[in-house]
């Protein structure tokens, strides 16, 4: 047979497989590089919440009765929450659906890359863009709309965990929803509609004291409402608590709901994530 003269590859000792965390970091670097090379995507991702903040906070700027804050000030934490959800939920929901449709995922699945490294890479990307987005909104909010940075360390600490839990929960939800659209073409409609609805019933576009209770109660099932509430608690004076449904910031409850979404979102991802489109079986 023709094969006998040929050296076959089989005897070489098996090398060690690269570690998941290291590969996750490398994938994160790669994701960030890819993201920033798509200029239009970068501009629109970051500009969207800033433009909305500018529009809303400039149109509605009166004092909100008995709260000691202006409508403009209310919109700053609201748009920060919206920005966090758009860089995590919306961008992951759409980009993963596209990668699945273009079979980028199927190719990765055919390599020895551990699946967790892919998700870690996405988390790094979302952390990076989320921090950047939040910093931009905070800069606009403090310079144009009289929002003060918190003066004590406890509030910064609260900001830290609210940001991380909110971002993670929304990112996991985004990964989960990416399996819903059947193709890349339908991805943005499938992802944007629920996000838009959530923004209306979670206190992003419309002040929390104007939304009917039954709507707020639906919004309260999802992380965005709690993310908004937490950021109001961090960046608004305590006098604004009167606007809340519960009359207080409810930090404990916020932590509980956001953490539950992180765990639930993770389970949802593990149960429903697909590396191939339905067409590919």
């Amino acid at each position: 047979m023709t094969t006998t003269a040929v050296r076959t590859k089989a005897e070489a000792p098996a090398g060690r497989l690269p570690g998941t965390w290291g590969l996750g970091l490398r994938r994160g670097g790669l994701e960030i590089k890819q993201f920033f090379r798509q200029r239009d995507q970068v501009v629109f991702t970051f500009a969207f919440p800033v433009v909305f903040l500018f529009l809303f906070a400039s149109i509605f700027h009166d004092d909100v009765r008995g709260s000691g804050v202006t409508a403009s000030q209310l919109y700053v934490p609201a748009m920060m929450a919206s920005g966090i959800m758009s860089t995590s939920f919306q961008s992951l929901g759409i980009s993963i659906a596209v990668e699945r449709d273009e079979k980028v995922l199927r190719r990765l699945r055919g390599t020895p890359m551990p699946p967790a490294a892919y998700f870690l890479g996405k988390i790094w990307l979302v952390l990076f863009t989320g921090v950047l987005e939040t910093a931009i909104l905070l800069l606009v909010g403090t310079t144009l709309y009289d929002v003060d940075l918190p003066s004590d360390a406890t509030r910064w600490l609260d900001f830290g965990w609210i940001f991380v839990l909110g971002l993670t929960g929304c990112a996991l939800l985004g990964i989960a929803i990416s399996s819903v659209p059947k193709s890349a073409k339908s991805a943005s409609s499938v992802v944007v509609l629920p996000f838009l609805v959530l923004q209306f019933i979670s206190g992003v576009y419309i002040s929390i004291d104007t939304i009917p209770d039954w709507m707020l109660n639906i919004g309260a099932l999802f992380p965005l409402k709690w993310l908004c509430q937490g950021l109001r608690g961090v960046f608004l004076p305590d006098s604004a608590r009167v606007l809340e449904q519960a009359g207080s910031w409810e930090f404990g409850r916020i932590a509980l709901v956001l953490a539950a979404w992180c765990v639930g979102g993770l389970v949802l991802c593990l149960l429903t994530f697909r590396w191939k489109t339905r067409r590919d079986g």
């Binding site: 098996a14 690269p18 790669l30 590089k33 090379r37 079979k103 190719r107 390599t111």
Partner: peptide, 22 residues
């Protein structure tokens, strides 16, 4: 299948090399 469009050939091949033990 498609490869990541925004990366260069060298970046992509180097990155995929990281997935393998040898």
């Amino acid at each position: 299948d498609s490869a990541p469009a925004e990366l260069t050939v060298r970046e992509t091949v180097r990155h995929f090399a990281r997935y393998y033990p040898r």
